[in-house]
Simulated scan of single mutants.
Amino acid sequence: MDRNIRMTVKLGNGLEFNGESLYQPERYNRTFYPLVYAGVGPKPDAIFCGNGSLDGLDVKGKIVLCDRGGDIARTDKGVTVQSVGGVSLILTNGPLDGYSTLADPHDHVLPASHIGYSDGVKIKSYISASSNPTVSFIFEGTILGTSPAPAIASFSSGGPSLASPGILKPDITGPGVRVLAAWPFDVGPSTVNSTGPTFNIISGTSMSTYSSSQWHSGGAQGRTSGFIQDIVESMFYSGL
Rank of each mutant, 00 (worst) to 15 (best):
D2N: 09
D2K: 07
T8I: 10
T8D: 11
L11K: 06
G14K: 05
L15R: 12
N18C: 14
G19W: 07
S21F: 15
L22W: 11
L22H: 08
N29F: 09
R30M: 14
V36T: 13
V36R: 06
Y37D: 13
Y37P: 07
G41Q: 07
G41L: 12
P44Y: 12
A46P: 05
I47V: 07
G50D: 09
G50P: 03
L54D: 07
G56D: 04
V64T: 13
D67W: 09
G69L: 11
G70A: 15
R74D: 13
D76T: 05
V79L: 07
V81M: 12
V81H: 09
Q82I: 02
S83F: 00
S83L: 06
V84Q: 11
N93V: 01
D104H: 14
S113K: 08
H114T: 01
G116R: 02
S118D: 00
D119C: 00
V121L: 15
K122E: 01
K122C: 05
K122L: 15
S125D: 14
Y126G: 11
Y126L: 05
A129H: 08
A129E: 10
T134D: 04
S136L: 04
S136P: 04
S136I: 07
I138N: 03
I138W: 02
I138A: 14
I138T: 00
G141D: 10
G141S: 02
P148L: 05
P150D: 12
I152H: 08
I152N: 08
F155Y: 15
G159C: 09
P165D: 05
G166S: 12
L168P: 02
T173W: 05
T173I: 12
G176R: 14
V177R: 10
R178K: 02
V179H: 05
L180Y: 08
A181E: 09
W183S: 12
D186K: 09
D186L: 04
V187G: 05
S190G: 15
T191Q: 15
N193P: 02
S194N: 14
T195L: 05
F199Y: 13
G204A: 02
T209M: 10
T209P: 00
W215C: 07
G218Y: 04
A220G: 06
Q221F: 13
Q221V: 00
G226D: 11
F227E: 09
I228W: 10
D230W: 06
D230R: 09
V232T: 10
E233H: 00
E233F: 03
M235T: 10
Y237F: 09
L240W: 12
